[in-house]
């Protein structure tokens, strides 16, 4: 579904070139929930932006649904959820969800249908007519996810969507995201810097490390697809979390010690 092979990306900055991604190769299969985890500067967000055609790699090949990322972007193959909800303050919740639909030229009735469906999906019923400032941070982020789901993209790219939320809200939204993933059967790429979040959500965990940004480990999770928060106390969960931690440590040794 998404294939990244031998991608290098160098940013030219005033302090000289920065190697943001080095020899990055990985695959995402249909229906996967893939997490990218690593410390800041490891290129996990950059990799997601490469897949979304928001950055162009210096070298290497990326395909999304057998297209180049830019073709996939133009064909509206993915929905992207940013760190900040980025809702338009002058639009209501449903107005915000309709925005991409308006740009994509859906008919009025279709817009209504789809908006209702995704509002159900993220459980924001009753808040359709509220403005963003009337919502909590968690609800804003749910509205933002609904907006990314409203059109027919089968890939959902999420860049630390819950990074700014407290742990209690984050746990709840993680559970809801898993439900949503099960119901919609989308393919999800998820950037995070939280080990429990990555292990809890993913079928595949991509561990990355900085300077230069590269992949140190790819873990196929043996956890069942259907899971709840209690799974975090199971032995498998702890074992995977341990392996992630080791992957992160392995990436660090060279320049920390």
């Amino acid at each position: 579904m998404i294939s990244v092979s031998d991608v290098n990306l160098t940013f030219e900055t005033n302090d000289g070139p920065v190697n943001a991604l080095k020899n990055v190769s990985m695959e995402v299969n249909e229906g996967d929930f893939v997490s990218f985890i690593g410390p800041s500067g490891c290129g996990k967000t950059t990799l997601l932006r490469v897949i979304a055609a928001l950055e162009t790699p210096t070298e290497g090949r990326v395909t999304v649904n057998n297209m180049t990322p830019d073709e996939a972007r133009k064909a509206r193959q993915y929905g992207y959820v940013f760190q900040a909800a980025g809702l338009y303050p002058w639009r209501t919740v449903s107005g915000n969800i309709k925005l991409p639909l308006e740009i994509m030229g859906y008919s009025t009735s279709e817009k209504e249908d789809r908006t209702r469906k995704v509002i159900d999906l993220v459980e924001l019923n009753g808040f359709e007519k509220k403005f963003p400032w009337q919502l909590s941070g968690g609800m804003q982020q749910r509205a933002s996810i609904a907006r990314a789901l409203a059109f027919d993209a089968n890939i959902l790219l999420m860049d630390e969507p819950f990074g700014a939320l407290d742990e209690i809200v984050r746990d709840r939204l993680n559970g809801e995201l898993l439900n949503l993933w099960a119901r919609t059967r989308k393919t999800i790429c998820f950037v995070t810097h939280s080990i429990p979040e990555a292990v809890f959500l993913s079928t595949k965990i991509v561990v990355m490390s900085p300077r230069p940004g590269r992949i140190t480990d790819i873990i196929e999770s043996p956890l069942p697809k259907k899971r709840d928060l209690n799974i975090r106390d199971s032995r498998e969960f702890i074992k995977i979390a341990q392996r992630v931690r080791e992957g992160l440590k392995a990436g660090q040794t060279e320049d920390v010690f």
Partner: peptide
């Protein structure tokens, strides 16, 4: 930048970006 990137992910034209985002 996030709002502009977001528009890009919806492959909005610069006229749409102007009308829906920049002007308001």
């Amino acid at each position: 930048q996030i709002q502009l990137d977001q528009m890009r992910t919806w492959s909005a034209s610069s006229r749409e970006i102007l009308w829906y985002l920049r002007f308001p």
